[in-house]
Structures are given as C-alpha cells and as structure tokens.
Nucleic acid binder design. Structure first.
Ligand code: SF4
Ligand code: SF4
Lengths: 153, 153
DNA sequence: CATTCTCCGACTCATACGGTCTTCTACAGT
DNA sequence: ACTGTAGAAGACCGTATGAGTCGGAGAATG
C-alpha cells in the first residue's frame, strides 16, 4: 500500500546528489548512476522527466549534464514525486473525478480527501536541502505549520 | 503516486457500513455490495481478508454475514489498510530489507523512513468511528499527539 | 436429510511499473 | 568544419500485482 514508485525514489537520490555537489557545474546522468549503482538508462529517463518538469536544467554535449534549476531549499519532495509519478493520489476519485463510478454513493470520499491533503502537506514540507544534511531542526522552519500537520476529519 | 488500492478503499466503505448498522446482527457481503454498487464477489474477498486479519467476524449459513470484531472506535484506518494491502510501504527497503539492492549506497533511506512513519501515524489516528459521523472535533482525542503529526527529519 | 444461503480458496485477466535498446540531436574542443 | 561526447526521445519487453471471476466447502434452517 501507498508504495511510491522506484522512479521517484531514484529521482530524489539524484536530486540530493546534485544538491551536494555545490560545484555548480553540470553532472552527467552516468556519473550519478554510477555513484549509486542504479541503471544508467533508467536514471537518464527520470532526469529527462525532471528536466521537462522544470526541476532540472540540462546541458548537452561534452562536459554536459544536469544541474538544479532552483536552490535545493526551494524544491520540495512533493514536486519531485508529482513530476515523476504524475498527479495521481491515494484514491481514484481525487484527481480524475470520473475515475470511480461510485462517487455518488461513496461515503468515505471526503474523509479520504482530507487524508490526502495531509499527506500532500507532509511531503510539501520536505525539501531537498533537508536530505543532504542529516542534521536535525532549524531547517524545519520551511515546514507547513511549523513542521506539524494537523489531521482533522 | 501513493495510490492506495481500491480494495482497501472498498474495505473502508464496508467497515463504515457495518459501523453504521448498530443492529448488531450480521450483514452479508451481498447486502453491502448492493448498497454501494461494488462487485459483490470482490467485496466478499476483501471481507474474507479482513476476517482473517481479525478485524471482522464471519458467520456462515442462512442469515449469516459479517460483523465488526471490535468497537468502531477501536479500529484504525491503518489496521484496515495494512490487513488488506499487506505491510508494504512507500519504499521497497522498509519492510523487506533485501528488496532494494541499494541499501548500502542509498542516502535517502532514513529520511524516507521518517516520512513513512509520519504517514503511518497519520493513518493510525483515524478510526472507523470517525468516518460514520461527519461531525468535527471531539473524537480526535484518540488521535496521536492530539491530532497532530510531527514531521522532523 | 435436503435445500438454500454464505463463506472460502484458487484462478484468470489487465494494467503499468521497472528496465532496456535504438536512434536522433546538440554542444565542446580541435 | 569535423568528430566525439552526452542528452533527448521514442519504442519495446518482461514481470509484478492489482482488479475482478469462478466453482466448491460448510453451516443453518426446516
Ligand atoms: S470508492 Fe469513494 S473514495 Fe474510493 S475512489 Fe470511489 S469515490 Fe473515491
Ligand atoms: S534503499 Fe534507498 S533506493 Fe532502495 S528502496 Fe530504500 S530508499 Fe529507495
């Protein structure tokens, strides 16, 4: 349940890698793939998707590669996941309204929507910058509601 | 992303239905299926799983059916989902340690585990009883941390 | 005892994720 | 301008697993 795809997983790793390399210059997909031992071609595809989504900037040719399009502390995990896996959410009815033919009779639609929003807020409070340093507090100032996500049905 | 299976979805609906019927007597899978227009056989299977997981008690034979094994305010959404969809979580590495062969090189494992726990706590704070009445506060006393889930990497 | 009702486990089908391959385009340095 | 490198883009396949279906076992009633 609630499994997030491996593509998104790899995507986050790549983002983190790029965030660590403050050198500024671009890093090739191959480099990142080798650093973490993930299938190079697959990661290339993921990076393409991220570039198309505006989270990365690509630079072709010799010494080319990818670089972050925005500072690491302005990219949320939610953006990354949504860009890679698409905007689909925990229930079929939330994004595509006609997906579930029970929308009329269903009674748990609204509560689940709340849960959905809570998770979304949770992910939106996590930034790439939070991943690079395993340090604790301080950065959480970004987090929604001061790092607390309320769940009230 | 983060899609929760339709089975779990249906399962929650069925649980809610049973919670509403305070009559105490058992209700057949067919009845519930007809009430919500979901495939009867599929729902039967879901209820079987829930019964096996100890959330429901089944009663075969004429006038048989299913009933809640515990009071509605003691069954969490998390239990339901875990029972139906299995204990799998957002990343492959959390439950089955050998699932991802990058566990050694992966650097985002720990942060994601935190996220995972947060979602788990979030779901654990939701009870079946919370679904039947669309009312607001008061029941949230059950919720973990007073309805607030903290996310701190 | 027989019939009817319901649960139960095993089974099939479809989707889509994970991963790979091939081709084309763009840039850097010579 | 030429060449080698690296990215972009699309098609392609195998498999995992989700969604849905089927026939049989078992229990209660009469
Ligand atoms: S059953 Fe209800 S909550 Fe689930 S997808 Fe359909 S309308 Fe949404
Ligand atoms: S080890 Fe890292 S890459 Fe592998 S499943 Fe866990 S978080 Fe994802």
């Amino acid at each position: 349940m609630l499994r997030l795809t491996k593509k998104a997983d790899y995507g986050l790793m790549a983002l983190k890698y790029l965030a660590e390399q403050t050198g500024g210059s671009a890093h090739s997909a191959k480099d990142i793939a080798e650093a973490y031992h993930i299938p190079p071609q697959l990661l290339a595809k993921i990076l393409q998707t991220l570039a198309k989504g505006g989270l990365l900037v690509s630079h072709a040719g010799t010494n080319g590669g990818y670089a972050l399009a925005k500072p690491a502390n302005e990219i949320t995990a939610f953006e990354v996941i949504r860009t890679i896996d698409g905007p689909l959410f925990i229930t079929s009815c939330i994004t595509i309204h006609g997906a579930c033919d029970l929308t009329s009779t269903c009674t748990i639609k609204e509560p689940l929507r709340k849960v959905n929003d809570s998770i979304k807020d949770l992910l939106s409070g996590i930034y790439i910058a939070d991943l690079v340093e395993p340090g604790d507090a301080e950065r959480s100032k970004h987090a929604v509601g001061g790092g607390l996500v309320s769940i009230a049905l």
